[in-house]
Design a protein around this nucleic acid. Structure first.
Lengths: 150, 150
DNA sequence: AATATTTAAGACAAGTATGTCTTAAATATA
DNA sequence: TATATTTAAGACATACTTGTCTTAAATATT
């Protein structure tokens, strides 16, 4: 699996928030219901995004979470790294410590290129574009068939 | 993590065996020692490769495992799919069941391209080439500093 | 045939990721 | 100020991956 489940859930929630252009707070309860993700688990994941200032949170009535900046200023990579870390883009594909240009493994070169492709894919796409694409095309970001963008 | 640890161990062992051009049986004990991988764990992993006929095994004295065909006829993808399955190349990056051209998620197109890159990378490189590269360049396929190709 | 060696198979243990539940802290609203 | 609502934090449970150990089956060698 490329991304952990936590990461996938974080991405889906972030896309949902990005579709909310006016940046109103959305409660995690609402998010968890729309996205069909366990409330408490999602809460913990979004806390990680709040911790690195990708999200802002507000406690109390009408509280919730929202993107901390416009959706086109947050890349998919930002979310992925916040949750899964940058191991995927740093580590050797054979798991060898210290694998790099000076002390490579046999797969280093080919993997470095592919790793770069993955990174670039995530870095050149932002939350707003993806949310727009989803909203306009009426595409799902959850397994449920009855998902609706806000 | 792109590949599971089992998969990485399987790849490393396969590369080691591929460097053994003459296709002699190598005991798993020897492999586990050279590659610094738990003997019993490696045994189980290699059984998976034997099960899909990528390896041949022989019990008893002077027994062990060897590639079932020339190293240039086994791609990295063969080994990866045998151990981790083809989920990585089939599944939606957001984990949505049924995500595909007809019923895509917003990330489907960009992910499908990247997924293809990964697959191509693994498919166009075979064990022999990688083993040769490692042997000729005196590159490691284990964390140990004193690793030696046979 | 007997023995030593080696893979096969499966039970079991440890570690990590995922998911649930309870309590605390903050805040809008009345 | 009191109350209801909501995120924060952490304990706990479950599932899966990784790793260990024991016994069985096969086979080369003597």
């Amino acid at each position: 699996m490329l991304l952990s489940k936590s990461c996938v859930y974080g991405l889906r929630a972030s896309l949902f928030l990005a579709s909310n252009q006016n940046s109103e707070y959305v409660s995690i309860k609402e998010l968890s219901k729309q996205l069909d993700i366990s409330f408490h688990f999602l809460t913990k994941i979004l806390q990680q995004l709040t911790a690195v200032d990708l999200l802002k949170s507000l406690k109390g009535p009408n509280g919730g979470v929202r993107l901390s900046k416009p959706g086109d200023e947050i890349t998919l990579l930002d979310v992925v790294v916040a949750i899964d870390g940058d191991d995927l883009f740093q580590e050797c594909v054979l798991g060898l410590p210290g694998c790099g240009r000076e002390k490579p493994c046999p797969l280093h070169n080919i993997w470095a290129a592919t790793r770069g492709d993955i990174r670039e894919m995530l870095e050149t796409n932002n939350l707003l574009d993806m949310a727009k694409k989803g909203k306009e095309g009426n595409l799902r970001i959850t397994a449920k068939g009855d998902f609706e963008w806000v």
